[in-house]
């Protein structure tokens, strides 16, 4: 049994001009110690999927369907206080802007100690030692000294480490990291990603890494889900999705990323932009931009089709072709 299972998740935003479906029929699972990358362009629903799992959807957004199970127990219908306990103890969250997760009025040590005390039965002295341990673990130099600093005295990279330390306080089973490195410089980015990878390896923590950056996914995640217009377009092992993408959207996405050493006059270009949630086309949401779209793509919505090493929501890979490809593999 996977640590986290998400089945047919649907997130809706009722507006006065009708209900918008921001996350539609999304299913995936994350195993212990696994890093699942969720990648997509802005508005694809990747962040909302993460927020729905930790139960922090902002009203009027709501989970309108599907199930979220953590260690086999449903967590999508829990009352707020129970959910809050799970959020502290079992699920940790890291957001893009570390400042929003830290209270500017308290020393970072105080904030970590408090969180440790809430979730464990350590004595205050032990809790402080644990806080120090956590700060060292996330790679804060001179932790004994920094523990008494206020958030504003730290640099962006250091703050993000503190946020990760906070998320680790209760030894969570799952960490949801939403664009954890987007606000950071490249050199710091590498350090934070190395840290996230180590968590899975050393503690068996599962990580859901939400990002728009394929490079980050490629070097951090074990598996990756590519989202488009609220749905999963393709999910599978990272080598498969990044190295041999199948969904036309993923193919285009990979081709549109420039690379050092790759000389080309033009980048592969997917024309147009992702549709607004208010006018997602009939059939496959990608059909207006797809170079391979045929009649069926304009009529029916493809569900993810199981293939070797993953699933692809594209009619080009329906049963017959899929079987053929599995046979090849």
């Amino acid at each position: 049994m996977a640590l986290l299972e998400v089945d047919n998740l649907r997130v809706e935003f009722p507006t006065r001009r009708g209900t918008l479906v921001a996350v539609d029929d999304v299913s995936f699972a994350i195993d212990e110690g696994e890093v699942l990358g969720v990648v997509g362009e802005s508005g694809a629903g990747k962040s909302l999927t993460g927020t729905a799992i930790i139960g922090l959807l902002e009203p009027p957004g709501r989970v309108a369907g599907g199930e979220i199970r953590l260690e086999g127990k449903r967590i999508d219908k829990l009352p707020p206080d129970q959910m809050r306990r799970i959020r502290g103890a079992k699920i940790g969250a890291i957001f893009q802007d570390p400042l929003t997760s830290l209270n500017p009025l308290y020393r970072i040590g105080t904030q970590i100690v408090e969180t440790v005390l809430t979730h464990t039965d350590l004595t205050p002295t032990k809790a402080r030692m644990r806080a120090l341990e956590l700060l060292k673990e996330v790679g804060i130099p001179a932790a004994e000294h920094r523990i008494d600093h206020y958030p504003h005295q730290l640099s962006g990279g250091m703050r993000q480490r503190v946020v990760i330390a906070l998320a680790l306080c209760a030894n969570p089973r799952l960490i949801i990291a939403d664009e954890p490195t987007t606000a950071l410089d490249v050199s710091i980015q590498a350090q934070i990603l190395a840290l996230l990878r180590r968590l899975g390896r050393d503690h068996g923590t599962a990580v859901m890494l939400v990002t728009h950056d394929m490079g980050v996914i490629a070097e951090t995640a074990h598996r990756v889900a590519v989202m488009y217009a609220g749905r999963i377009a393709e999910i599978g092992a990272v080598r498969q999705v990044v190295g041999r993408p199948r969904h036309p959207y993923t193919v285009g996405l990979m081709g549109s990323i420039p690379a050092v050493g790759r000389d080309q006059e033009r980048l592969t270009q997917i024309d147009g932009a992702m549709p607004r949630l208010t006018d997602i086309p009939r059939g496959c949401a990608f059909n207006p931009r797809c170079p391979h779209a045929f009649d069926r793509c304009f009529a029916d919505r493809p569900d993810p089709i199981a293939m070797a090493d993953g699933k692809v929501a594209c009619w080009r890979f329906d049963q017959a072709e899929a079987a053929a490809e599995v046979g090849h593999a």
């Binding site: 935003f13 001009r17 918008l20 802005s42 147009g272 549709p275 607004r276 208010t278 779209a293 045929f294």
Partner: peptide, 28 residues
């Protein structure tokens, strides 16, 4: 199998704006 003529949709850079990560704004 793909009917390529069906894909000749003129959308070069003119598809609808993306709604951003937040609750999407209704189309104006």
């Amino acid at each position: 199998m793909a009917d390529s003529s069906a894909t000749e949709v003129d959308i070069a850079g003119r598809a609808a704006p993306d709604p951003g990560g937040k609750p999407p704004a209704p189309a104006t």
